[in-house]
């Protein structure tokens, strides 16, 4: 039974051998199996394989009988004493510094991205303001805010002088409070007339409140950015120390 299992193992290994799937250890096992099994127990179809493997064993020297040259150890010791080992501490330090610098730059980029996100969010929260108050550098401040000399006037018109405005700018947007009032479109100039002076006053108050809010939020965003930059500087200083 034992011999049958060895023969089966041999057949399996030989099949792998001729498919070039065996390792050197498996090939050595094939040789040792052929050497152990008596020739009369080898099946006829494996006779040539036995001859082949036992002959190939001759072509490979036996390592057990090999003599090491006498002066080899002397030469090795001479090499060791002449060549000192490489000091790699400098390399390790440089690698460590590289990782520290890379990490700090990455952290700074992340903080900057976060601060930009916060600034963007603060801009989105602030509602839009009427364009003619911000986008007309050529318009003087007096002209941008309508003068209401008589609050009982039936009509008050928010108007810019055609000479000072750039007509390529889009018509002014009206916030929600103004949109609820009765408005009259002046088709020629593209501006909207607000007839009720009280409503106009309310609109102006709203506008000033919005401006104040926006400036507060801008200040907050600026503080955040400054804090971020300061933190980055402190981190960099501590790492460099």
């Amino acid at each position: 039974m034992n011999k049958n299992s060895e023969i089966n193992k041999l057949r399996f290994l030989l099949q792998r051998y001729y498919e070039a799937q065996t390792s050197p250890e498996e090939e050595s096992l094939i040789v040792s199996l052929f050497a152990e099994i008596e020739i009369q127990d080898i099946p006829n179809d494996l006779i040539f394989d036995r001859k082949l493997f036992l002959s190939m064993r001759e072509l490979h020297p036996l390592q057990t009988n090999l003599e090491t040259p006498d002066d080899l150890l002397v030469k090795i010791n001479r090499e060791i004493t002449e060549k000192p080992p490489i000091v790699s501490e400098v390399r390790k330090k440089k690698r460590k510094n590289f990782f520290i610098y890379t990490g700090s730059v990455a952290a700074a980029c992340v903080l900057f991205a976060i601060s930009v996100q916060i600034i963007n969010k603060s801009n989105i929260i602030a509602p839009p303001i009427i364009d003619n108050l911000t986008e007309s550098p050529s318009v003087s401040p007096e002209e941008s805010i309508p003068k209401i000399s008589d609050p009982l006037e039936t009509k008050s018109v928010i108007r810019k002088s055609k000479e000072n405005t750039s007509l390529s700018s889009p018509p002014p947007r009206i916030n929600q409070a103004a949109a609820e009032t009765e408005v009259v479109l002046n088709e020629e100039s593209g501006y909207i007339e607000i007839t009720d002076p009280e409503e106009a006053r309310d609109i102006l108050v709203e506008i000033s409140k919005l401006l104040a809010n926006n400036s507060i939020k801008t200040n907050e965003a600026t503080h955040i950015v400054e804090n971020t930059v300061n933190e980055y500087r402190e981190i960099t200083k501590s790492i460099l120390k």
Binding site: P61, P69, L72, K75, I76, E79, I80, K83, P85, I86, V87, S88
Partner: peptide
């Protein structure tokens, strides 16, 4: 399959290991 080549190979290998043995 050559004595001199094998000796050189052993010397070079051990020398290379010695250079990096501290790491």
């Amino acid at each position: 399959r050559d004595s001199d080549e094998a000796s050189d190979a052993v010397q070079d290998s051990i020398s290379a290991l010695w250079q990096k043995h501290t790491q």
